[in-house]
Write a protein that binds this DNA or RNA. Sequence first.
DNA 1: CTAATTGCAAAAGCTTTGCAGCGCA
DNA 2: TGCGCTGCAAAGCTTTTGCAATTAG
Lengths: 137, 137
Amino acid sequence: MNSENQELRRAGLKVTLPRIKVLQLLEAASASAQHMSAEDVYKALLDAGEDVGLATVYRVLTQFESAGLVIRHNFEGGHSVFEIEKGEHHDHMVCAETGKIIEFYEPELEALQHKVAEQHGYTILDHSMVLYVKPKA
Amino acid sequence: MNSENQELRRAGLKVTLPRIKVLQLLEAASASAQHMSAEDVYKALLDAGEDVGLATVYRVLTQFESAGLVIRHNFEGGHSVFEIEKGEHHDHMVCAETGKIIEFYEPELEALQHKVAEQHGYTILDHSMVLYVKPKA
DNA sequence: CTAATTGCAAAAGCTTTGCAGCGCA
DNA sequence: TGCGCTGCAAAGCTTTTGCAATTAG
């Protein structure tokens, strides 16, 4: 039940209420492949009766990102969204109609990306791939 | 020499100096696969002695995007970059060391993406794929 | 006890908008 | 001439930062 505390300590961060709460929220959201913006996290905390500042949410999320606990995505639209780093790489599909986010992993795609980079004399450090889709008619 | 005028007219936009200038700049940049931010365009215009406002640059770029003349990318880092729509779809590789942008097109990748979307019951409307790379050792 | 962390408010970056005047068709 | 377009300044949004007070270890 304090597995969050372990993760925070391992990341070299003091175990404070805001950090625990943010981590719990993101882990809960992770179950449904939900991705939360800083604003989302902030509002969820307020709704839960927690008294945290928006600035703290941003700071905590940035720290978590540096610590490798979460991944920051820059999908369309100005703001960032975050998801728990579960260690398993995957890419995303965003449904234009429902806003739903589908995660997927396709080894062949990954292999091809490396091949293409290779052909141009480069090595892949990272990549972002988002498919904008709509339900098949 | 006034092919720009044609393009503007075709897009239903009045032919004005700022629009011509922005279009010319982007077309010139296109030759070197350079991608420009609104700020870049603005500064380039000032350097060229043109007297345009930053707001106009933003408006013009947004209009061009709606008209399908340019494509807006949201690579990492808050701000958008633009490139001329040349009609040939391609994806991007960004070199982490030099900032250089390489364009590429890999049919197999495109095909695979469609296959994956299909498998999940979706049809692809659009996609964004950026590989962050470094020169091969 | 001491350095890390927090909340608040202010500031910073990018982008958009309101408005009066200018310019293309 | 008339409506579209422009520049300027002001506002909007997300995100960051300064600072005094608070808290974890």
